[in-house]
Computed example of a mutant assay.
Amino acid sequence: MDISAEKLKRFRLLSNLSQELLAKQSGLSLRTIQRLEREGGGSAESLHALCATLNISAEQLQHNADPVQARWQRTTVISRLLLFIIAITALLGLMGQASGSSLYIYLDMMSLIIITSFLTLSTLVCFGFNGLVNAVTGLKYLASSQLYQQQATRDLVKLYSYIYKNCYGAAATGSLIGLVSLFNIYAASANTSQFFAGLHVLTILWLYAAVVAECLLRPLIYKLKNAID
């Protein structure tokens, strides 16, 4: 059962109970009370025991299903959008200079498909369809001026932190598969140019993963964590 750590502590203090007294009156161990106030969660039995002791309903002790509340200001949204455009323009300019004014070497549809598919499937497996929807719609909070709703914000931090790590997991997985294929092709044909062309594709895979993780997800995670603090 999804017991709210914040609510449990608040109701315990309102009842003038210490953790030791709450544990004794509810029949739960002190370690369980400490864990629930730190992490939340818990079983149905723990929820019912705490509700009976604190004389509250189960709904009062569980997390709210409310989404993150954000304050939107036109100046903030426009400024964030302009900063994003400037950053992307500068990045593309640097990439063009590094490649002799040609950006085509950075375009690889297969790498994009690998990254997108891996992140989509892994998020679906671990967080379900609602988690995937929250991951996509939550990107809008990059442009908000202020965020509210502590628990929902924490949930987004966990979600995006998982996806952040999976960006590099997708690149690593794609690279391993690609290397096996490249070595098999090279062993059969000894074509050096084809081998190095394949390595270029694997490099692009890591570039895409880094752009998504560092330019999009890391700033969003930082913003959400600041809202919690």
Rank of each mutant, 00 (worst) to 15 (best):
D2K: 13
I3F: 02
S4K: 07
E6K: 15
R12H: 10
L14T: 01
L17Q: 11
S26A: 06
S26G: 02
G27V: 14
L28I: 12
L28R: 05
R31S: 12
T32W: 01
Q34D: 08
R38A: 13
E39F: 13
G41Y: 05
G42R: 07
S43A: 08
E45L: 15
S46V: 10
L47A: 15
H48K: 12
H48N: 13
A49W: 00
L50K: 03
T53W: 00
N55L: 05
I56E: 04
S57V: 03
Q60T: 04
L61M: 09
N64V: 06
P67S: 08
V68F: 10
A70S: 06
W72V: 06
R74L: 13
T75F: 09
T76D: 14
T76S: 14
V77S: 06
R80D: 07
L81T: 11
F84M: 09
I85W: 03
I86T: 07
A87T: 12
I88G: 05
I88V: 12
I88R: 02
A90R: 03
A90I: 14
L91R: 01
L91Y: 15
G93F: 05
Q97R: 04
A98E: 15
G100L: 09
G100D: 11
Y104K: 13
Y104V: 09
L107S: 10
M110I: 00
S111E: 01
I114M: 09
T116D: 10
T116Q: 03
S117N: 06
F118W: 11
T120C: 10
L121F: 11
T123I: 07
T123M: 07
L124V: 05
C126G: 00
F127S: 08
G128T: 03
G128F: 12
F129P: 03
G131N: 08
G131Y: 06
V133P: 00
V136W: 10
G138F: 06
G138L: 08
L139C: 11
Y141H: 09
A143T: 05
Y148L: 10
Q150K: 15
A152F: 07
R154Q: 11
D155P: 01
D155G: 12
L156M: 10
L156T: 02
K158G: 07
L159P: 00
S161M: 03
Y162R: 00
N166K: 05
C167S: 05
G169H: 08
A170D: 11
A170I: 10
S175G: 12
L176P: 02
L176G: 03
V180L: 14
F183T: 14
N184Q: 11
Y186E: 02
Y186N: 06
A187E: 07
S189C: 02
A190F: 08
A190Y: 08
N191T: 04
T192Y: 10
T192E: 12
F195L: 14
F195G: 04
L199A: 03
H200T: 03
L202D: 01
T203R: 01
I204L: 08
I204M: 06
Y208M: 04
A210E: 05
A210M: 11
V212S: 04
A213Q: 09
C215D: 01
C215V: 01
L217M: 11
L217C: 06
L217S: 05
R218L: 13
N226R: 13
A227Q: 13
I228R: 13
I228S: 04
D229G: 13
